[in-house]
Design a protein around this nucleic acid. Structure first.
Length: 448
RNA sequence: GGCAGAUUACCCGAGUGGCCAAAGGGGGCUGACUGUAAAUCAGCUGGCAACGCCUUCACUGGUUCGAAUCCAGUAUCUGCCA
């Protein structure tokens, strides 16, 4: 397929990315999205849900098709930043029902290098994961290594900055490892201090080499502390980067003919501002993306509203991925407002420090009260860990600093979130979503 | 038997006249983690009716306005000598 030569081509009517569609790079294969059930058509919302949403719901079920298999949505996408879900074998991820994994372009670019993954036959082949894969663009690291460095955010400094609104990052954080400009970002490697340049083009090249089925456009993630002026400036930067990502993506798709088609998702920013979120969704929605990521700084209370703003502006026939979410309440909120997939580090990160999920809330297994608790992490869980191990045993592993503790709890936590989202999907199909949500959250947050 | 040194909170270990309920580790307890610089980080860790009081630095007795810190004796341990 010819690559677009002008910006107008990039903005050309966005074809539904179904396999074999002429005029779209996906024609060489195997990316698509089909909505199968809409929440509006099969729902019996609670009064509370109606009040929160004004009676309209964006939620749906669907199927994403990729060269490495399908993903039934809503789906939780487990995070494996450096081509591994920390402490868990890919076989275990498959057994616990994970449909797809998400890695990170920045991390893999630094180590082992994207060319290694390319030579290995792509991310999935490299790590022995047969299913669909995603890569994040490195956009998150612009924040986490930059203004979000060590999460030290000095509000006084922001308020006092004479440059507030122009470049808030000047006032935020110290010893930042990332410095952003309109063309891209300078990263100082957190591994050895080398300087690296990331631009939208570099991110696309890296992600094409890594070879995930779904890639994300290179974006800037702002923090809630950035001024409105900075948010506007940053959003425009992300918009221009999106166009550059598409152009480079098309060029690489052509150049790398013969490789499985890689889908590209644009990333919606705009922080907590309705007009910015809607504008970003509208602007990127008109571009030739295969789907969208909803990213950025958002307060928990606004999560549903923000997802809804985006969903209302985005094309309905393309999948929407909400970046970085997995708490049960957030998942339900996101689903009913139109998010199809989510990813989050939480299940494994939290597992490594002994927190485990149950239908009755999250608890710390390192607590002394589990010393003689010979029950599974959750009586109702069907995961490998719960079928074979007790709380007392895993508590002991934590106390003894034995590494399998992380493995066992990570398997359980990943299963818990995967299953919760799977159950939510079934509930949408059965028309019982709101009852399921209410019951699940009532149990999980008994104190609310 | 002689000489020298040691003894601090659950453990290791700083402190050698007042700023000491006593640094720093470890351990223990509690909490936090939402596109992973996270097998990380934070708080607490003598007692209590708690902006104060009480009991602690091997034990006993002294010196001093004041002692974990100085002196004497006792106990235990470690070296070296017989």
């Amino acid at each position: 397929m010819p690559s677009p030569e002008t910006t107008a081509d990039l903005l050309a009517p966005a074809p539904v990315a179904t396999p074999g569609t002429p005029g779209h790079p996906a024609s060489q294969g195997e990316f698509g999205f089909e909505v199968t059930t809409r929440l509006n058509e099969s729902c019996n919302p609670t009064a509370e849900a109606i009040e929160q949403n004004g009676g309209t719901f964006q939620g749906r079920t669907g199927v994403i098709t990729t060269p490495h298999g399908t993903i039934k949505t809503p789906a939780f996408i487990a995070v494996g930043t450096k081509a591994t879900v920390k402490s868990v074998l890919p076989e275990s991820m498959e057994d616990l029902g994970a449909q797809a994994l998400l890695s990170n372009a920045y991390h893999l670019y630094l180590q082992p290098g994207a060319d290694i993954l390319d030579a290995a036959g792509g991310l999935g082949a490299f790590m022995n994961w047969q299913g669909p894969t995603f890569t994040d663009s490195g956009g998150f690291q612009v924040m986490s290594l930059g203004s979000g460095f060590k999460k030290v955010i000095n509000m006084d400094a922001v308020a006092a900055s004479p440059h507030a609104g122009a470049d808030d990052s000047v006032a935020v954080g110290k010893e930042r490892l990332a410095h952003i400009d309109d063309d891209g970002v300078w990263f100082k490697s957190h591994l050895n201090g080398d300087m690296h340049r990331f631009t939208p083009e570099v991110s696309m090249q890296v992600q094409h080499q890594i070879g995930a089925d779904i890639m994300f456009a290179f974006d800037e993630l702002t923090t809630l502390l950035n001024s409105r002026g900075y948010q506007e400036m940053s959003l425009e930067r992300t918009r221009l980067w999106a166009l550059r990502c598409i152009e480079e993506h098309f060029r690489l798709t052509e150049e790398r003919t013969g490789k499985p088609y890689q889908a590209l998702f644009g990333v919606i920013q705009g922080a907590q501002y309705e007009d910015l979120r809607r504008k970003a969704s509208h602007d990127l929605g008109e571009m030739n993306f295969d789907g969208f990521g909803i990213g950025g700084a958002l307060e928990k209370e606004n999560l549903g509203t923000i997802v809804r703003w985006c969903a209302e502006e985005l094309p309905e026939n393309k999948p929407r991925h909400l970046l970085g979410i997995s708490e049960p309440d957030d998942i339900f909120t996101a689903i009913e407002n139109g998010a199809d997939t989510f990813d989050c580090v939480s299940p494994t990160r939290v597992a490594r420090t002994s927190a485990f999920y149950t239908p009755d809330g999250r608890f710390n297994l390192s607590g002394a009260k589990y010393k003689r608790d010979f029950t599974p992490l959750s009586e109702e869980c069907d995961c490998y860990t719960c079928e074979n191990y007790t709380r007392a045993y895993i508590h002991h592993l934590f106390k003894a600093k034995e590494m399998v503790s992380a493995t066992l709890v990570s398997i359980h936590n990943e299963r818990f979130v995967v299953k919760m989202v799977d159950d939510a999907r079934l509930a949408i199909e059965n028309g019982t979503f709101f009852e399921f949500k209410a019951e699940t959250l009532r149990r999980y947050y008994p104190k609310r």
